[in-house]
């Protein structure tokens, strides 16, 4: 099972980790029902200590994004969320309306809504 972390997302996570001086920083992505298209994903920054090894899967970037530090970007997903999101990639988009982490290229998604956080599984 693979999750792609784009360089932009890795950079951003590293920056956050450095400004918070928290080397244990991780991004949790979870899926819930609801949203305009049936499922929506939620994101939160967590501490690697809070990961429940029974339920969660941690993905770590293979290399350090920026050579100034040694933080490797970490993404945490729980079992049902991973089931829906496997094969997708985590990106950090910079747009006029705001910059945000985004899940893109969800393989099972049939359609998604205008804001992009809600999707439907075929």
């Amino acid at each position: 099972m693979n999750i792609t972390i784009t360089p932009r997302a890795a950079h951003r996570l590293q920056t956050i980790s450095e400004t918070d001086s928290n080397p244990e920083l991780a991004l949790r992505v979870s899926v819930e029902s609801g949203g305009c298209h049936g499922f929506q994903y939620l994101m939160s920054l967590i501490n690697a200590k809070d990961i429940d090894p029974a339920e969660d899967t941690v993905f770590e970037n293979e290399e350090v994004a920026r050579k100034t530090g040694d933080y490797k970007a970490k993404i945490v997903m729980d079992e049902p969320s991973l089931e829906l999101l496997k094969g997708s990639s985590i990106d950090y988009t910079m747009e006029l309306i705001g910059s945000q982490f985004k899940v893109t290229g969800i393989p099972g998604a049939k359609s998604s809504c205008g804001c992009g956080t809600s999707f439907d599984i075929a």
Partner: peptide, 9 residues
Amino acid sequence: KKGCYTGQE
């Protein structure tokens, strides 16, 4: 006025 639900769009 309730907010997001499936099919709301």
